[in-house]
Design a protein around this nucleic acid. Structure first.
Lengths: 341, 341
DNA sequence: CAACGGAATGTGAACGGTCACATCTAGCGT
DNA sequence: ACGCTAGATGTGACCGTTCACATTCCGTTG
């Protein structure tokens, strides 16, 4: 029995390739390739024959081979956070959808800590997959330092407002914070606290800035904002601490979770909301409408950001059009956690 | 001037490849390849020289080429849901981390609707990227029909308990639901409602089953559970509706969000929790501890599931070891939303 | 000292597509 | 009837890496 050609051999089934299709359809492999990329000059009858064979034998184009020869990976990298926040998650979902629709896939890397090495490794990892574009959702200041220092060769966009050139698509955080603060001021509050996010988060910084701007505009004073970690737990403990001195009548929390925790602390101390303390959150997570009381907050359209980020990248990839990057305006949602003091 | 070799040509910078490295290091390309895959028989001095060159010119191995020749994509596919629920998101984060650590990347596809075509397309899409393994987080019944009918050729694991052979790694939903229900019964409740998740979700079904088992064990009766959509909104409106007839004293909601909405409805109708109505949720999202009142719920260890799913797949990919798949036991977290009737 | 053998390194082919170019056909005007 | 052109299809090379096998080097041993 000839060793190499043993017909009994189980013979690792190889996935059908373009030449198998060609042979069965009685055409050349190049014709098959043309059908796959629907090139214009191909006779309908031929095309149909090829498609039939493809369906019949279950042929799938090999992405790796295609990527190799075109040196296009059809992959968009996403640099994100380890923590599963509502906003990023929602945006990523939208990004994935938009990307897939355009024939791109995503490669997501979560960078856990904000330290230089981890972030650098994350970006490196993405680049080694020869991504064609990069979306950065890790909203930490340090990421942007690294990004600019690395002089990335692919188009990229951040979902945060930065001064890093044009590559940004974001909700205007400053405007949102001003909306929230203005709302409290308009109600008549003069002593307003701010519970901020972590110092190294761009969003946290921007919201704090918006808050301070509006406070200054109204000639009010405020205690130094305290820096939280976005969690409801933090909001709770911060509340217990802050409320030992009741020298304020309103709180602007930098996200809904911290607002929730803070309200928890209020209840525990027997304070009524908004009777004793008004509170505004940020994000408008779906649960916020069902907090006790339903939370006044600032709504960000996360899916929209994701979609626009991708369309911005895609247009840059196609080379066409001056990219219309920009900011999305957030919206104040007034519910029952705020009232006149 | 020779056309092809014009030294003035800007000449699209090509990324350095293995042969460039070889040339500069004065070795053959195969030696470079050996260094990259740290093959044992390579002299230390040579290895160092190659590594130096790699660092110097910033060479990155081309994943596509590698994938092509080895027919290993080093990619694990993830089939997930469009909606950004806390549980799946948290698991995915853990999965990503574990996969990356093992040198695998993720390809995530969200399938929006539960209809056959969409799910099939999602799986097809993943397979066309020649994934080496598949994690299914889309917990819909229909997904599993498709999965079994397709006879996937790669190892796969679902994050839901199924009767689909061994490929599953999940929190024991039935046990969790029994824990919750038992708790209410132990407190003395005899009229217990269940707000379930959507009918075609495996988890929803399992939790309902656990609930009914425990109800039967205790010789109690219950009204037919109502089928929700996991959202706080649904919980709210369901609450308004259900509470028109107050023929129950406790509610087991199939997730924390619906519990939240339900509590909102209670407050609005002037009912106290747990005074008038006790309520138990499911998941223990981080916010649950700060609801009003803090929610008694069932904790699932989502990251652990993700990690274990990957380690199960990896061991299957390596071919070693009988895979220790299985279930993780959930845990009841008693807070202040439950008391004796 | 020749023969040996293992460690270290090199060579050709292959993976599965696409690109650039070559060839073949059919329709058309003159 | 002829050449021309555009449409349809085929051929060879190449993308960057690994695999299988071949070759060289060098220290050991009988």
């Amino acid at each position: 029995m000839e060793p190499g050609t043993n017909p009994m051999e189980p013979d690792r089934v190889r996935a059908p390739n373009i030449r198998d299709v060609a042979r069965l359809a009685g055409v050349s492999y190049q014709t098959v390739s043309r059908v796959l990329n629907d090139s214009p000059s191909i006779k309908d009858s031929t095309k149909q024959r090829v498609l039939d064979v493809i369906g019949e034998i279950g042929y799938r184009p090999n992405q790796a081979a295609r990527a190799l020869v075109t040196s296009k990976s059809r992959t968009i990298g996403v640099l994100s956070q380890q923590t599963a926040h509502y906003g990023p998650t929602t945006s990523i979902t939208a990004i994935e959808g938009a990307a897939r629709e355009a024939g791109y896939r995503l490669s997501i890397t979560n960078v856990s800590s904000g330290d230089y090495v981890a972030i650098k490794a994350g970006i490196d990892y993405l680049l080694s997959q020869s991504i064609e574009a990069l979306v950065v959702i890790a909203p930490q200041v340090r990421v942007f330092e690294i990004l600019s220092e690395l002089s990335i060769s692919v188009p990229f966009v951040t979902l945060q407002a930065t001064d890093l050139g044009v590559h940004s698509m974001s909700v205007d955080q400053v405007a949102g914070a001003r909306l929230a603060t203005r709302h409290l001021i308009d109600l008549g509050h003069t002593e307003i606290m701010h519970i901020s996010g972590p110092q190294d988060w761009i969003e946290a910084e921007a919201r704090m800035q918006g808050f301070l701007e509006e406070i200054n505009n109204a000639d009010l004073r405020t205690r130094a904002p305290i820096l939280g970690d976005w969690s409801a737990h933090f909001g709770y403990y911060a509340g217990l601490e802050l409320l030992r001195f009741r020298d304020f009548t309103a709180v602007f929390a930098s996200n809904d979770q911290m607002a929730l925790g803070f309200m928890h602390a209020c209840r525990e101390l027997g304070l009524s909301i908004p009777g004793d303390i008004s509170i505004v959150g940020f994000d408008d997570i779906p649960e916020a409408a069902h907090f006790f009381p339903p939370l006044t907050t600032v709504r960000q359209n996360f899916p929209e950001i994701g979609r626009r980020a991708i369309s911005l990248l895609l247009s840059e990839l196609r080379g066409d059009s001056p990219l219309e990057q920009g900011q999305i305006t957030p919206e104040l949602v007034v519910r029952e956690s705020t009232s006149a003091p």
